[in-house]
Each structure stands twice: as structure tokens, then as C-alpha cells.
């Protein structure tokens, strides 16, 4: 190939061409270096996102969403996130459109919307707890003990509570749908229990009615026609006609009465922890 190339003799103009080309070296657009660092997950961005409990501040990088926090203003949210993540964090005016859209759809109850998460540095146990919480549908709740049993650690109820309290991405991972094993609504990391009530009520759960029922010892709900027993917020339990509703204190009581556990909400699993 090269032998067929006719190369003209160098001339002064030839060298000037090279000189002119050196002037074509360009400076990258402002922000490109930061874009690269965000994409690799070495730097985060943080932007506001409106929610029923106030302005959420969402941090993300190329690996996924790294934090959801409730804060009065951006600089405060950024400072907290930098302290927790130890990553430089840039304040942005808005989330990328696709991410804002995915979060809005997830909060609206679409569980299958893919939202990548950056969970570097988290333990396998924590990730297992959060992954399990993701299975709880909007409008339903499960006790800590159920999560513990479902992930194969039935005695780790307290650790499940701690892991949920450390959930860095509340609302996206719906830790608000996990309630205390005694049936009360319990604590919430994103601004306290009042917010947990607000969010659950917004999703169609009646927290007060749930707590009242638990206080009366009504932890499970059976159907007199199907003789199946569920968590009270299970979609199958909510379809039971009022006249056919049979409350139970425990799965053992239900089994003794000839009821079997629902295969959707699996109330069996709590037995070891309850």
C-alpha cells in the first residue's frame, strides 16, 4: 500500500501545514471531565425531586442512584451526602429525564421499572433485605419478621430493622412498607414515623386501622369461603367480603382452624420470628 504512495518533496509550505495542524489542538468543553468522573462513579450529582413528603434530594452517578434524602436545601443535602459517601458531589438543577421518569413510575407503584442503584460498600445482608423489601407491592405492608424469614435469617429480625433504617434510597427501595412485627407501623429513616404514615396512606394503606387490628390481636385475615389466611394488606385478603373475614392471632391458630397460608403473601414465614 505505502509503496504506491507518491510522496511529494517537502517544501516550506509542508512544514507550515504541520504548524497549522498543531493549532487544531482543542480544549474539551467545560464539564466534560466531571461528566466522565460521574459516569465512573467517582463523583456524584444531586438534584431535587418533588414528593408528597417534601423535596427529596436524589444523588446518582453512572452506577446508579446512591442516595435519597429529605433536606431543606441542596447545599445541605450535598454536604450530608459527601460526608456519608466520601465522594465529591455536584449540585444539579434536575435529575436526568429518564431517571426522574423511572423514579416517578416506581413511586406510582410500578415495581418493574428498572432503577440501577449504587450500593457499593453495603453488606450482602443489607442488599438482601432491601431486595426483599422491593417485592412488597404498593398498598401492602409486611412485618420485619417476614423479611427476616424470607431471606433465610428468621432470627435476624432486629438486624433487618437496622438494615432498613440504613436504606440509602428510601421510597425507591420501599422500606416504608415494612412494619414492626407487633403490627405497629414503626420507625422511618426519612424524617420519622409521621412520614411513614403519610406515604403508606398515599399508597392506599390505612395505618390507623392496621394498628387497631393488631392491638385487638388480629394479625392475619382468613377467608371463610376459601379457608386461606393472609397478611391483612395482601391483595387476596382485601378481596374477602366483610361477612367472610375471619381474623387470626397467629398462623398456628389459623392452621388449627383448618386454614392454609396464602401462597402470594406467605404468612408462614413469620412463625419462627413472631
Amino acid at each position: 500500500m505505502t509503496r504506491s504512495v507518491r510522496t511529494p518533496a517537502p517544501t516550506p509550505a509542508f512544514d507550515d501545514t504541520a504548524g497549522g495542524l498543531a493549532s487544531l489542538a482543542a480544549v474539551a468543553p467545560a464539564g466534560l471531565a466531571d461528566d466522565i468522573l460521574v459516569e465512573t462513579g467517582l463523583v456524584d450529582r444531586m438534584a431535587p425531586f418533588a414528593s408528597p413528603i417534601g423535596t427529596l434530594w436524589v444523588a446518582w452517578n453512572g452506577r446508579g442512584v446512591s442516595e435519597v434524602d429529605l433536606a431543606d436545601d441542596g447545599p445541605a443535602a450535598v454536604a450530608r451526602h459527601e460526608a456519608r459517601s466520601r465522594r465529591r458531589t455536584l449540585l444539579a438543577s434536575a435529575l436526568p429525564e429518564h431517571l426522574a421518569d423511572a423514579i416517578a413510575r416506581r413511586l406510582a407503584g410500578q415495581r418493574r421499572v428498572r432503577i440501577p442503584l449504587d450500593l457499593r460498600g453495603r453488606t450482602g445482608f443489607e442488599v438482601a433485605v432491601w431486595t426483599k423489601a422491593l417485592e412488597i407491592p404498593r398498598g401492602e405492608v409486611r412485618p420485619y419478621g417476614w423479611v427476616a424469614a424470607e431471606i433465610g435469617r428468621p432470627k435476624a429480625v432486629r438486624a433487618v430493622g437496622t438494615a432498613l433504617g440504613h436504606n440509602p434510597v428510601p421510597l425507591i427501595v420501599p422500606c416504608h412498607r415494612v412494619v414492626r412485627t407487633d403490627g405497629t407501623i414503626g420507625q422511618y429513616s426519612l424524617g420519622g414515623p409521621a412520614n411513614k404514615w403519610t406515604i403508606l396512606a398515599g399508597e392506599g394503606v390505612d395505618p390507623a386501622a392496621l394498628e387497631d387490628a393488631a392491638r385487638r390481636g388480629e394479625r392475619l385475615l382468613g377467608s371463610a369461603t376459601t379457608r386461606i389466611v393472609c397478611w391483612p394488606t395482601c391483595r387476596n385478603a382485601r378481596r374477602i367480603e366483610p361477612r367472610n373475614r375471619v381474623p387470626f392471632r397467629s398462623l398456628r391458630d389459623a392452621n388449627a382452624a383448618g386454614y392454609r397460608a396464602c401462597k402470594v403473601c406467605r404468612p408462614t414465614s413469620i412463625e419462627a420470628a413472631a
Binding site: 487544531l24 489542538a25 482543542a26 480544549v27 474539551a28 468543553p29 466534560l32 471531565a33 466522565i36 468522573l37 465512573t40 467517582l42 463523583v43
Partner: peptide
């Protein structure tokens, strides 16, 4: 992780310039 930012700052302009002049489109 502690050094990559220095690499980016040292090379981002030339990576961009090469791509710009090869592709002809910013």
C-alpha cells in the same frame, strides 16, 4: 479511585482534540 481524576484532567483535552479532528464534529 484516588488517582483517576488526575488522569482525566491530564488527558481529557487531548482525547477530545483527537476525536474532534478525526470525526470533525464536536
Amino acid at each position: 479511585d484516588g488517582t483517576f481524576e488526575s488522569l482525566v484532567h491530564a488527558h481529557v483535552d487531548r482525547c477530545y482534540a483527537i476525536a474532534l479532528r478525526v470525526l470533525g464534529n464536536p
